[in-house]
Amino acid sequence: MSKTKKKFDFSKYMALIALIILVIGITVLNPQFISPSNLLNLLRQASVNALIAFGMTFVILTAGIDLSVGSILAFTGAIVATMILGGTPAWLAGLIGLALGALLGAVNGLFITWGKVTPFIATLATMTIWRGATYVFTGGNPVTGGKMNTSFFFQFIGQGYLFGIPFPVIITLIAFIVCYILLHKTAFGRKTFALGGNEKAAFVAGVKTKKLLIIVYTISGLLAALAGFILTSRLGSAQPDAGTSYEMDAIASTVIGGASLMGGKGRMSGTLVGALLIASLSNGMNLLGINSFYQQIVKGVVILIAVMIDSQTQKNRE
């Protein structure tokens, strides 16, 4: 019964096709684009956004949104950097940072479920709160120097290479595999889809919707903190304004990857492609010497086109 031949679902590969066209196009204009060193560089640039976007995918699947990821990134980054400066071993500081990120995500989930605040407003508020907290905590200055320059572990996370591949890329790849399995192969993932597709029906079918939502926002917070750790390590300092507007790139990656803000629809692989597309766009335009002011305009147009094509094909199928 389920063995019926599936028709080639064009819309499923839309983002991938766009990515390939983009890669070919930029390469034609500047062949340097596909040199191994540039590609590795591109992947490293993509990793921070991709990690945040993986978490955002879970959130958006539930018809939610997490605007606070950039602030969680900055806040946990500042805490981790300060701890390392104070003598805490880098691995321990990193773990504490991840736990803190998860906790802040869970707090978002609590406001949304028990507090009955819509996700947009709840995370808009925490976005402001944690950004403010970061400025208070750092006094507005970057946290840098000291043991951050001498800890091998700390530097390796963001700047190291393993088998010639930037370590952040490896972390992102592992995170992708874990998130992919979690979303597409476990009961938790199935319930996430169900909740996004119809929250009431999911609840009646025995899904503990509040608990599930809290976990989803926890994952988002955790991945934001992981991205924060990598970014801090790569830059060698925690900037109080780090991660500003990163939520937008993450949302864009998820949506380009085929997720619907109405929930219930999306794929982890789509998000990965979306993140690569956004990174290629920036990297490629830099190579082509396009002014960064114009880059923003192009990025906005690409997002619009991607979503318009998606909703059109959606309509045609119905």
């Binding site: 009961a187 199935r190 319930k191 889809f193 169900a194 119809n198 999911a202 025995g206 219930g264």
Partner: peptide, 24 residues
Amino acid sequence: KDEGLIVDQSLEDNIALPSIDGFK
């Protein structure tokens, strides 16, 4: 449509949902 089904998901997803933990 409001509480019984997730109308845009497959029959399999709908049917298995209350029993999903049993397929672990």
